[in-house]
Simulated assay, not measured.
Amino acid sequence: MLNQHLVWRRALLIFLIVMGALFLLRLHRADGVEQPSESIAAGHRLAEAWCMECHVIGAMPTGAKKVAPDFVAVANRPSTTKLWLKVFLKTSHPTMPNIIVGPSEADDLANYIMSLKRD
């Protein structure tokens, strides 16, 4: 009987440690700290590969013909949020090519575009 109680106590202790670690990991991700530079760099690479044909990736050069909004303008719209960008990237639009964007790619692109926001 003593061994069975010891096994249950150890199992409970391990469970509590794992749950605590997961809780701390979740807090770390939700604390609002700036996005990692790797994600922003990955988003920039994706924007160059997928978006540059129609969008200006950085600021709009003087005298450039504006076909689609440049990413700096998109980032600085009052309504632009990371969530809005992720939803937009996963929604089909008649004026855009139908690119299938995965969840991590949407995060990277949204992080890159939001990094262009001026304070």
Rank of each mutant, 00 (worst) to 15 (best):
H28T: 12
L85E: 01
I113A: 02
C54S: 07
M60I: 04
I99Y: 14
W84N: 07
R26K: 14
R26Q: 14
P78S: 15
W8T: 06
G63C: 04
G20T: 09
H44F: 13
H55N: 06
L116A: 03
H28C: 08
T80E: 01
G102W: 04
P61N: 03
L109Y: 04
W8N: 05
R118I: 15
R45M: 08
T80V: 00
K117V: 11
N111C: 10
T91H: 12
D31P: 00
S39P: 02
I57C: 03
T81C: 04
E48W: 00
L12R: 09
E34M: 14
A64F: 10
T91R: 15
A64S: 05
P61E: 00
H93G: 10
A49M: 03
Q4T: 11
P103G: 10
G58L: 00
N76M: 04
Y112W: 06
A106M: 13
L2H: 08
R10L: 14
E48T: 08
A110N: 08
N3C: 07
W50V: 07
F88D: 09
V18Q: 05
V87Y: 05
E38D: 11
V56E: 09
A49E: 05
L25W: 09
N3R: 15
A68F: 01
Y112M: 08
V56R: 06
G63Q: 05
E53D: 05
N76D: 02
A41H: 02
F23Y: 10
V72T: 09
M96P: 02
S104T: 14
D107K: 12
A75Y: 08
A64H: 06
E105I: 13
V101L: 03
V67L: 13
H28Y: 15
G43P: 04
G63N: 08
N3M: 10
H44P: 00
A59F: 09
A41M: 07
V7A: 12
G43I: 04
L22Y: 05
I99E: 05
E48L: 15
P94F: 12
D107S: 15
K117C: 12
C51N: 02
S37V: 15
I14F: 06
V74Q: 11
L13Y: 06
P69K: 01
M19S: 12
A42W: 03
V101D: 07
R45L: 06
V7P: 00
G32D: 04
D108Y: 13
P78L: 13
I113G: 02
A73V: 04
L24R: 10
V74N: 06
P69Y: 00
A11K: 08
H44A: 12
L24A: 12
W50N: 09
A49G: 01
M19K: 10
S79K: 08
H93E: 10
T80H: 00
H28Q: 14
S37T: 10
H93W: 13
L116S: 01
Q35W: 07
V56F: 11
K86N: 07
L16W: 05
T80C: 04
R77H: 08
R77T: 04
V87F: 13
M96R: 07
V101C: 11
H44Y: 12
D108F: 15
V7W: 08
L27D: 06
T95H: 14
